[in-house]
Design a protein around this nucleic acid. Structure first.
Lengths: 236, 236
DNA sequence: AAGTGGTCTAGACCACCAG
DNA sequence: TGGTGGTCTAGACCACTTA
């Protein structure tokens, strides 16, 4: 308890004050100099406590003015989108997958646009079902820019996931996601082994490498079996 | 361009190397001492560049070993769940809301459990529809622990949102979310003004203050009008 | 002008990991 | 034992804000 680093002790002190309500939203907290006096540390150490709490969204700072307790109103919480294979393994499930399709197709307009290639040019497409304990959990339809991953079709995706392979051959520099609720079509119902139509979570992910758009993936999971989770806390 | 802070220039240099593929996944990057020699800066400055890139997930460090390019495989991407009023205002829409219900009810089992109160005890409930340009975008059903916000029912939620009010009277210390796809019931269809049944995104949010669970909210949005977005990049 | 945060230096000691 | 990252110090100069 007591042999925590000094900057961590100061962080904890600030968090305690906020939790206890002693320092309210938008109220000023002690300056770097005040803290370094109070805790008998150098300014750099006090500064580190304030900087890290600012980074994690607990405080806001502005030059010349001071440091303040952040207003919760403006806080946005974060949700994780994780690798589904890792998730399954982490909760002790048995992860398997089935490659339903691995081919090259002619890009219709929306695919061509999403991948940044010419319309009707050839692109690669894979469809893979991810299973947990042999029950389908998520279907992944992925379109790949052949210029950036020419050997995509030769891979064995029952051993290594497309995402893993692609990050090796074309280092990832950027990714964008959207999440929405959709009704699956009949095909997807079959793949996910759903008897009745039920709503699904659809994650659309586009990934970039330094040479352009690498791939465009639709990850569809049954709404009742899969959910995204997030957690926001003040303990850190 | 050239009058960036030194630590930022070093960060950019490292990112450039990774983007260009010169430094591959899991490969070692220069140590603090090597960077401070190379860039003619103090070790603290080189250290800051490495620390910040580690914090943002680009690098991983371990004491005694060195600093390495993080593997993308293990990276999880983050999605934001934001205050809907802020979101609407930010994109230039006109935000309004309608309070459909504000009352105290008897807690049935799942509500009592979620709020951590006795079954059949009184809890507060509000139902509010959030509009963008007078069209319903999201409905918020919220259950509130009366012990932590006794005057909840007296508030005017057309002026201040429940979330705003609650963070004032019971400072937030923790929040948990789940996101799933659901089919709305008839009631929700009415509130959201949907003619046909369509899938919806449902965010469940529980918030804690230092004295316990403050509230439990269901935020339901039409799948076709609302989506969550996320972005992961190397530019920062 | 005084106080704030933002950047930076040139040292220091420590814990950890390798050969 | 030497190199690495982790913590810390006691200064310094600057840009910014308020009075």
């Amino acid at each position: 308890m007591t042999d925590q680093p000094k900057f961590a002790q100061i962080k904890q002190h600030i968090i305690d004050k906020i939790r206890a309500g002693a320092w309210q939203e938008n109220q000023r907290v002690p300056s770097e100099n005040e803290l370094s006096d109070q805790f008998q540390v150098s300014r750099m150490t006090a500064r580190r406590a304030l900087s890290e709490l600012t980074e994690s969204g607990v405080l806001t700072r502005s030059q010349g003015l001071g440091t303040f307790v952040a207003s919760f109103k403006s806080q946005s919480s974060l949700l994780e989108i994780r690798n589904i294979a890792d998730e399954v393994k982490e909760r002790g499930g048995n992860y398997t997958c089935i490659v339903l399709s691995l081919e090259s197709i002619s890009a219709i307009a929306p695919i061509a646009i999403a991948l940044g290639v010419e319309m009707d040019s050839l692109v690669y497409r894979s469809i893979i079902v991810h299973n947990e304990n042999d029950a389908p959990l998520q279907v992944e339809e992925r379109f790949v820019n052949p210029a950036l991953a020419p050997e995509y079709l030769q891979q064995d995706f029952s051993q290594t996931t497309p995402h893993e392979y692609l990050t090796q051959v074309a280092p990832l520099t950027e990714a964008r996601h959207t999440v929405e609720a959709i009704m699956p079509n009949e095909e997807i119902c079959q793949w996910l082994d759903m008897f009745n139509e039920e709503p699904c979570l659809q994650v659309i992910r586009r990934t970039w490498s330094s040479h352009g758009i690498v791939s465009f993936a639709r990850l569809i999971s049954s709404g009742s079996k899969y959910r995204l989770g997030g957690h926001l806390t003040f303990k850190k």
